[in-house]
């Protein structure tokens, strides 16, 4: 589905991603773990098309398309979705209006008519149930005054509504209590099919008990320094990152 080759990107003179290689196929779940500041969010943002980051080398192929040539909205239209580590508050626009606009904008790009209101409402109701979201929430302003947990749930609600091919969940688990974590993870698992793929960015093994990865990668200092199966996540939980980061630091020194 997505194939990232030798991706180098940064801000101005500061190279943050120093040659990332990653291949994710339809139906797979990949976890990316790593210490703070290793470049996880940067990778997520570069895939989603944030223009603050300059790509200096490398390619990203998404189902045969050169992703780096597309605007963020075009990437969304072909099925890329990023659940933000820090979702943005947008006062003055309700959750329902925001989601309606996103859906209709994508439909417009595909030359489809706007979604009929009853269909939209039905879909919203289903997905809200899936994520145990209360009714009044739709008329609240987008993320405004939301708790950390509410913001993250709102991200997954949008994911459920937009049905992306590739979802990148950037620390969706941080700030969630265990009950909410379970609800959110269950929601993600229900959205998961053999035709879509998920990249889960997390610090903790905890989320991976619920969203079980096929592959685990460790990102450190802008490079994937180790990849393995889900057992690797357990190992990291027990031993921390030092044992592999030190080795990597020696190698790249």
């Amino acid at each position: 589905m997505i194939s990232i080759k030798n991706l180098k990107a940064g801000i101005e003179d500061n190279l943050i991603l120093k040659g990332i290689n990653l291949e994710v196929k339809a139906g797979e779940v990949h976890a990316i773990m790593g210490p703070n500041g290793s470049g996880k969010s940067t990778l997520a943002c570069v895939i989603a098309g944030k223009e603050d980051y300059q790509v200096q080398e490398g390619t990203i192929d998404f189902e045969g398309e050169d992703l780096l040539e597309l605007s963020p909205e075009e990437r969304a239209h072909i099925g890329v979705f990023l659940s933000f580590q820090y979702p943005v508050e947008i006062p003055g626009i309700s959750v329902s209006n925001f989601i309606k606009t996103s859906i209709n904008e994508r439909r417009k790009a595909k030359e489809l008519d706007p979604i009929p209101a009853p269909e939209l409402l039905k879909m919203m109701r289903e997905k809200m149930e899936l994520l145990n979201i209360k009714k009044g929430y739709l008329s609240r302003n987008m993320n405004e005054g939301f708790s950390g947990g509410e913001k993250k749930r709102n991200e997954i609600f949008q994911m459920a509504m937009l049905e992306p091919k590739l979802a990148i969940l950037d620390e969706t688990d941080s700030g969630l209590d265990i009950d909410t974590l379970r609800i959110v993870a269950n929601g993600v698992n229900k959205i998961k099919t053999k035709d879509n793929a998920i990249i889960v960015i997390t610090h903790y093994q905890r989320l991976l008990d619920y969203i079980v990865p096929d592959f685990v990668h460790v990102l450190h200092n802008g490079r994937i320094i180790k990849s393995g199966s889900k057992e690797l996540a357990h190992e990291l939980e027990e031993k921390g990152y030092d044992w592999i980061t030190k080795e990597a630091d020696k190698k790249w020194a």
């Binding site: 944030k50 223009e51 996103s102």
Partner: peptide
């Protein structure tokens, strides 16, 4: 960027933010 990443085109995203 948040809005564009949801598929809302730049001009429209600006308009929505402006209306907001």
């Amino acid at each position: 960027f948040y809005m564009r990443s949801r598929g809302i085109r730049e001009k429209e995203a600006k308009a929505v933010l402006t209306y907001a």
